[in-house]
Write a protein that binds this DNA or RNA. Structure first.
Length: 804
RNA sequence: GCCGGGGUGGCGGAAUCGGCAGACGCAGCAGACUUAAAAUCUGCCGGGCCAAAAGCCCGUACGGGUUCAAGUCCCGUCCUCGGCACCA
């Protein structure tokens, strides 16, 4: 018997076996329960995968294989989110068509993913750039258009001057482009928008039914940003204009002492008095010139100018001056506020700066009213509201104002509609035709897909027009409605479009009649476990939820949430930093595999730390795991040919191991799961001299297979099995073996351990204490002392409290 | 600023129902095997007092508290990571 562990040989052999037997294919209809375990599909970059990417893929593969051993029919697919800027930019720089570069990258990614030994069913591979796929991406857009959820609007949007395209709000981080880091500017453009705000409440409420990490749900809740309040209208003095504001504190209406309009507010022009014109114009111009970043600096001093105009207070005979200030943002609420400096920090600062009135209207229940007070309390200086609590006063104030039609209760969201157009080449063409007679018309479903034309140049124009606009043969077409001459929409969809529904396509990837069949979608969906990076918490994960709710409303699916359970794995760092090619701190899995084998890499990815936490890559740790696999191989291989009958010590170890491991697997604690293997193998090493029984050898082999599938198969065949180890069942345990007859307990004096004692596991409290008090070790601690208290914690310890 | 997570040996991390802190791994030290090395195997491995062992004392960011008993619960402080950031 050759007891040398040669991972490369074993791994090559079993990969070949898996390819020929097709053991990883998902079968649509069996009598097993289904389980859909999904990875966030990657963007196939030119850099390939590093060990950081592999962590998530390894977790999902271990989980899929574990679930399979538990008897589930598994869907574990993989595909490519292959539209996007990097391929396009690379194409421009090197004169290679993005499709060619993308195909090459996909081939490399696929090779690497096959290397992991993951049980992907490659028959179901999905590629967002495949016209057979994006036909359906366009189909869903058409459906949205038909229902008024996709609309075109001229508005100032976020523009990345470096990527030369518009961006969604979600893609702007700290005023910078999420992708390239360039400072984002505003640009007034016609844009295709998706009305995600129509789903705001459902997107918010349904978070409650998801088994997702709390912090991800929290991020989505914050992003949607629901806040209840009121819209209140103020009449401009000496004019028919009204200024509408949104306020979450209508209770403080009597404390409003001035109004503020955002510099972009449409009323600024018309209400400004002649003598104030020059100042206001200058201020507005300056504000608009400032970048988002400058305007977002919080601790800067407040700036603003008086417009010369006043509004009438809706409830009392008082005039409030109207100011323009950039601390009010045009794209939240109505772009105008009523300022209550006594109870709002920002208004207070502004009022102090410009010497405006401050009228307190809320008094804290106990103690003095401070100049600025934002807490709860009782209303004062508020006529009929006086004496009410804040919550009650909010309701009363709205009632009071709405009686004269000056206000109504409303809900406001931070979430904006989704800017869905990109002025770039490498994306799904938006399937719309612009007709002078009929306006924008959707391309009929039977004419989809609108395919990307072959082009010579795909440089972005930077003018706000897509490169497609220059291709006459693409642009010029006829109107599907009236048949007259018309022009195609030349913007493309953002990269998120294809990933919003790809998980549905895996259920039925080759369907030419529909995005998926009812039968397939019914069987496999929703996704039971979704694994990926937390960076998508409010982008992909919010967009996908929106799409699924929309597709649900179309009546195509019964469920309205795509991902029942979400797991976000932590990053792998090297030298404390995220791995990236530009930082030069990338560990390439290909090198690791050549030295230690892929099973060792998989095992180490699981062992490196709690899967949800960030973890530092350490080659020494990998070596330790590789050593452990070698020990395991020698242990099982060395006893496979001549097992001995089982004995109690082996039964006990085995049942305890299975109980511990299963518990840790179920709670997704893979790092301690690996520890459980190590402890078990260490214990078995001591037992090995007396031989090992078949149950022990098989249990260890089956259990380790999800982690080290090649090793698992090899050992399983050494144990004489002809079929795959993944046809076996996850081992079970018997409670009776978890109990000890005798246990060692600690004897504590005043809470400190002073001795040990072996007692029967079911010993009574009285007996345990009596035995403890007689123990020789503790005599010196109790002699001549008064015993105040005695406790026995079952199976753990006796504590004797003494005095003196 | 607001919200949330987290501070444990030389290192990664165990232990979260309050019950013997440091599982497992790495690094280190000593030994076995070997002509030798690698590989493999065995033992030790938080700090202090002590020649050593036994033993005692200290020890889970810091300061208090509750409790027979606190890494774990409560109050306060510091640090760190993540999210949001003039959202009315």
């Amino acid at each position: 018997m050759d007891l040398e562990y040669r991972p490369q040989e074993i791994e090559r052999k079993w990969k070949e076996v898996w390819r020929t037997t097709g053991v990883h294919k998902a079968h649509g209809h069996t009598n097993k329960p289904k389980y859909y375990c999904l990875d966030m599909f990657p963007y196939p970059s030119g850099n390939g995968l590093h060990v950081g990417h592999w962590r998530g893929y390894t977790i999902s593969d271990v989980w899929s294989r574990y679930k399979r051993l538990l008897g589930y029919e598994i869907l574990h697919p993989m595909g490519w989110d292959a539209f996007g800027l990097p391929a396009e930019n690379y194409a421009i720089q090197n004169g290679i068509h993005p499709r060619v570069a993308t195909e090459k990258n996909i081939a490399n990614f696929k090779r690497q993913l096959e290397e992991i030994g993951a049980m992907y069913d490659w028959d179901r591979e999905v590629n967002t750039t495949d016209p057979d796929y994006y036909r359906w991406t366009q189909y869903f857009f058409v459906k949205m258009f038909e229902r008024g959820l996709a609309y075109r609007k001229k508005m100032p949007i976020n523009w990345c001057p470096s990527c030369k395209t518009g961006l969604a709000n979600e893609e702007v981080v700290d005023g910078r482009c999420d992708r390239c880091g360039a400072e984002v500017t505003k640009r007034e453009m016609y844009q295709w928008m998706l009305k995600i705000t129509a789903y705001a409440d459902r997107l918010l409420d349904d978070l409650d039914k998801l088994d997702w990490p709390e912090h991800v749900k929290r991020m989505q809740r914050a992003w949607i940003g629901r806040s209840e309040g009121a819209r209140i209208r103020f009449k401009v003095d000496g004019s028919t204009d009204e200024i509408e504001v949104f306020s979450t504190r209508p209770d403080t209406i009597y404390g409003a002492t001035y109004m503020v309009l955002a510099p972009e507010h449409p009323l600024v022009q018309s209400i400004t008095t002649e003598d104030r014109q020059a100042d206001v114009e200058r201020y507005v111009e300056e504000s608009l010139r400032k970048s988002n970043i400058e305007r977002q600096v919080v601790d800067k001093t407040k700036t603003g100018v008086f417009t010369g105009a006043y509004v009438k207070h809706p409830l009392v005979d008082r005039k409030l001056p109207v100011w323009v200030a950039d601390y009010v943002l045009m794209d939240y609420g109505t772009g105008a506020i009523m300022a209550v400096p006594a109870h709002d920090e920002r208004d207070f600062e502004f009022a102090k700066q410009f010497g405006l009135d401050i009228i307190p209207v809320v008094q804290p229940e106990d103690g003095e009213a401070e100049e600025l007070y934002t807490g709860d309390g009782r209303m004062i200086n508020s006529e009929s509201l006086n004496g009410l609590g804040v919550e009650e006063a909010k309701r009363e104030a709205v009632k009071l104002l709405s009686a004269t039609g000056q206000a109504e209760a409303t809900v406001n969201y931070r979430l904006r509609d989704w800017v869905f157009a990109r002025q770039r080449y490498w994306g799904e063409p938006i399937p719309i035709v612009h007709c002078d007679m009929c306006g924008p018309v959707a391309v009929p479903e039977d004419q989809l897909p609108v395919t990307l034309p072959e082009v010579e140049r795909y440089e972005p124009t930077g003018t706000g027009e897509s490169p497609l606009a220059a291709i006459e043969s693409f642009v010029n077409t006829t109107c599907p409605k009236c048949g007259g001459p018309a022009k195609r929409e030349t913007d493309t969809m953002p990269q998120w479009a294809g990933s919003c529904w790809y998980f549905l396509r895996y259920a039925d990837p080759h369907n030419h009649e529909a995005p998926f069949s009812q039968e397939a979608i019914h069987y496999w969906l929703p996704v039971d476990m979704y694994i990926g990076g937390v960076e998508h918490a409010v982008l992909h994960l919010l967009y996908s939820r929106f799409y699924v709710k929309f597709i649900h409303d179309l009546g195509l699916i019964q469920f309205d949430e795509p991902f029942q359970r979400l797991f976000t794995q932590g990053m792998i760092t090297l030298n404390g930093a995220k791995m990236s090619k530009s930082k030069g701190n990338v560990v390439n899995p290909d090198d690791i595999i050549a030295t230690y084998g892929v099973d060792a890499l998989r095992m180490y990815e699981m062992f490196v730390g709690p899967p949800e936490d960030e973890a530092e890559w350490n080659t020494n740790g990998l070596e330790g795991v590789a050593r452990f696999l070698g020990r395991t191989f020698r242990l099982v291989a060395g006893h496979a040919a001549h097992p001995v009958p089982g004995r109690d010590s082996l039964h006990k170890l085995r049942h305890r191991f299975v109980a511990t491991l299963t518990e840790r697997m179920e709670s997704f604690r893979f790092n301690t799961s690996v520890s459980a293997f190590m402890e078990y193998v260490n214990a078995l090493s001591n037992e090995a001299k007396q031989g090992l029984d078949p149950d022990t050898l098989e249990t260890l082999t089956i259990a380790i297979s999800p982690f080290a599938p090649h090793l698992g198969e090899e050992l399983w065949s050494l144990l004489g099995h002809k079929e795959s180890v993944f046809e076996a069942a996850w081992p079970t345990y018997d409670e009776t073996w978890l109990k000890d007859d005798e246990v060692e307990i600690a004897i504590q004096i005043n809470g400190r351990v002073r001795g040990k004692l072996v007692v029967a596991a079911d010993i009574s409290e009285a007996d345990a204490i009596a035995l403890a008090k007689r123990a020789p070790d503790i005599q010196e601690w109790v002699q001549g002392k008064e015993i105040v208290k005695e406790l026995y914690v079952k199976g753990r310890l006796v504590n004797i409290v003494v005095k003196g």
